[in-house]
Write a protein that binds this DNA or RNA. Structure first.
Lengths: 346, 346
DNA sequence: CTCCTCAACTGAACCGCTTCATGGCCGCCT
DNA sequence: AGGCGGCCATGAAGCGGTTCAGTTGAGGAG
């Protein structure tokens, strides 16, 4: 009743263990005939390679790692990670590579996990998400020699290959769109300021606004929760020069902002335009449905996974751009009503 | 520059590999003094046990598996899984056990994954979620002999230990609450009818309603998406005897339902009361905030993980009840306004 | 002083697979 | 005929641990 091993197959086929190994791994060294016979026997007795034995003899662990470093309550809310994971899985399934997942509270713990995983030979590589400015994980992983791919702008990825999409271009698209609708006071409710992509967006936002004659462009930083999104919105909408449009860094905050606006008796989109980011099903469920920046997150997850697998397999490196994001206008954006907003702001 | 092995430690300590193994695993067979010396050396040269080698010699894989069997787009929306996962992780971290995650499209694929994982010695056990009526996974896992814990009602878990919470009790709490508010037409927008917990809720819902004099209690089944939740709500609210309260099987549908109601110019909660399930941050972000059934999902994830670890370690089995859910009233429920709803329904 | 016991430690086998050095066999070239 | 190169296949040596059967030496009992 024990699991069959190649030794069992060898005995039944009347060949040596070595031959069986060659046969089952598509290596040269056995005749086509013998190979088929061996494969048939393996099939018949339900043989499966023992992963431990295989990776012990220097081969791969056939698993990659993903560490998420945000408190549980933030993780749940953002569909982002789950979608990303399912995209990664799609790609991994093809190579029958597994995904090891770990959720940790901070970077220190995350680094410890990489150390352990790599030290124990548990994974062949890892995907680093949520790149920070001066991210401490990058040098550690580099020194460890563990293959890794970063999701985020290459500028923070050191020598590690990065997969990213051009956020500045979409942001420009968003602001040009809002500016074209007549908005001159556009606010941004951003995510964690420590994140590299937040910084990049911050900087681009201010530049692009200036360039397009958007005179007021305040930015509020949050932790991505609906709660903080709501609070930031409340503050922005209470200011003297109330913005006529707000761009949010995720959907949950956009929804929270929408609720706050309605609570304050502002009509969306007549009095206030709202743009979400990382369009999730949530955007389509609320009224009005949210104009949002959308991109195929599973696809970009698959893209990252593919890059990592290639890196592991052939050392092929190099950053490459993932699928682009784009603006998807829905019901929460409209032309700025000059008279109305100005009169109110006075 | 290669990773140190116990052989290296043995050489430096002037003892045999066996002694090192005993020392590092807290086994008897070495003196306290030697043990300390060996541990110090291990520490110093940064030794980590090679997982593959360890599990090859019959020990554990130090990993458990979790397979999610829903399309990517459903997974992302439901904070449920991510919260559950982070709860599981909390528990696993303590035993430095890893989590293998896989997302598959159907049960057949899921079963194949279990076969592979168990065959390859990749995991020590698994957590089965989303129990179906006559779930095909249960007998397969039983026959495989793989330790597994089911999240869901024990009635469908066969000989596998189950961890569940008493849904019927909460459902009763919800309906009693609504009935006490004067609601006599309560609808339910349920999830996938194939899921065991959907069936259990369905049955209980109809019984409890009958018992409490709730004369109308239609049920609509959906796939948990906001889209279908919206459609079901629209249909229910268009019926001649419009319900005065709707209970949803998840939050995203409750939010969708809320939007539909507002679109149809119904006031929530004056004209329609709404109750969500598995309270997520989403419920607090919309206006009015949603009355919902809440429970500590991370805690129940941790609970499941703990049960599985115990099962793996000591074969200790037995189903046990997890943390209970309870009703959390917020702004989306109110007394039924008889005149108003009746006059409209005519 | 001898015998026995027990703790401390050693040496080797083993887990299941990969891989390399080796060798037999066959056919072909010179 | 002899030599050589290729193809198939074998046997054994690892990979890095665990574990079990022994060995050794010290200490206590008789």
């Amino acid at each position: 009743m024990k699991r069959p091993t190649i030794a069992d197959i060898a005995k039944r086929a009347g060949v040596s263990k070595g031959a069986v190994s060659y046969a089952l791994n598509g290596q040269p060294g056995v005749s086509a005939e013998t190979r088929e016979r061996i494969q048939a026997i393996a099939q018949e007795i339900g043989w499966r390679p023992n992963l431990a034995a295989r990776s012990l003899s220097g081969a791969r662990a056939d698993a990659i790692g993903l560490v998420l470093c945000r408190p549980a309550r933030f993780l749940g809310v953002e569909p982002f990670f789950m979608e990303m994971i399912s995209g990664i899985e799609d790609e991994l399934a093809a190579s029958s590579c597994a995904l090891m997942l770990q959720v940790v509270p901070d970077h220190e713990a995350e680094i410890a996990v990489y150390r352990r995983w790599w030290g124990e030979g548990r994974v062949d590589g890892a995907i680093l998400v949520d790149l920070h400015a001066d991210d401490p994980r990058v040098p550690v992983v580099e020194r460890l020699g563990m293959p890794a791919v970063v999701t985020g702008h290459p500028s923070g990825a050191g020598s590690l290959p990065a997969v990213w999409s051009d956020e500045v271009a979409v942001l420009r698209e968003v602001i040009e769109y809002l500016a074209a609708l007549g908005h001159r006071r556009i606010a941004r409710v951003a995510g964690l300021p420590a994140l590299l992509h937040t910084r990049i967006r911050d900087e681009a936002f201010s530049e692009i606004c200036a360039e397009l004659g958007v005179t007021e462009h305040p930015v509020a930083h949050t932790d991505y929760t609906g709660e903080q999104g709501a609070r930031a919105t409340r503050r922005l909408l209470s200011s003297r020069a109330r913005p006529t449009a707000i761009v949010y860094d995720n959907d949950i905050m956009a929804v929270a902002g929408l609720s706050v606006a309605q609570e304050m008796r502002l009509d969306v989109p007549a009095d206030l335009s709202i743009v979400g980011w990382d369009d999730s099903p949530l955007s389509q469920v609320v009224r009005p449905s949210l104009t949002a920046v959308t991109r195929d997150i599973p696809a970009s997850g698959a893209h990252v996974a593919r890059t990592l697998l290639r890196l592991i397999e052939s050392g092929e490196t190099g950053s490459l751009e993932g699928p682009p994001a784009r603006l998807l206008p829905r019901g929460s954006t409209a032309p700025a009503d000059r008279d109305r907003t100005v009169s109110r702001a006075m």
